[in-house]
Amino acid sequence: MAEAGSEPRTEQAAAEVAASAANAPFDLAALQARFPDVAYEQPGADGWPVLRVPLKDWRELIAHLRDAEGFNILLDVAAVDWLQRAEGRFDLLAHLRRLPTTAQIRCMTIVDGAQSAPSLTPLFESADWGEREVYDLMGIRFDGHPDLRRILLPDDWEGFPLRRDYPVEGPRVLDPASKYAH
């Protein structure tokens, strides 16, 4: 059976790749020259190096990673609610990879309650649904998103369920005028 692109790696080779990916997934000096406010963190237990990005640089930095460094897949957009945190309420994350190598990078930024984040949709199509879901469940708005509507919940839903101050049981009794009421 022909397997065109299969590349079985030995154990050592995999370890080598992982090590090199951890050390230099990208040209950090060039990146920090262009974005001086970006902080770099060495990979933690899970092997993901982290870039802490100010919100203003969010889209430009990820554009830089895509265009200059060849990160070609935006795996996921996610958000974490820290409710009372002084620096700002939400962590917004983007997991990027450079396929088919093992280079990977997590970008994090802080979005405060009333702020909106620049949308990544001009860079990656996967940001379309990813950001819609973050908006739907966390309530972070994205500037420049072409179609920022709720994606999982009904259109007339109130509140953002994944926020920490949203009760797990939700409203239970929905507005009787809603077609979703029962």
Partner: peptide, 30 residues
């Protein structure tokens, strides 16, 4: 993704739970 020509499999790239000890191919088409 593999059917689109990218030989990418988490089991090979970031082996977990001892997958690096097994021999298997990553079927790919273009």
């Amino acid at each position: 993704l593999r059917a689109a020509g990218v030989a990418w499999d988490v089991r090979k790239a970031y082996p977990y739970s001892g997958y690096e000890r097994y021999e298997f191919g990553v079927p790919t088409r273009t």
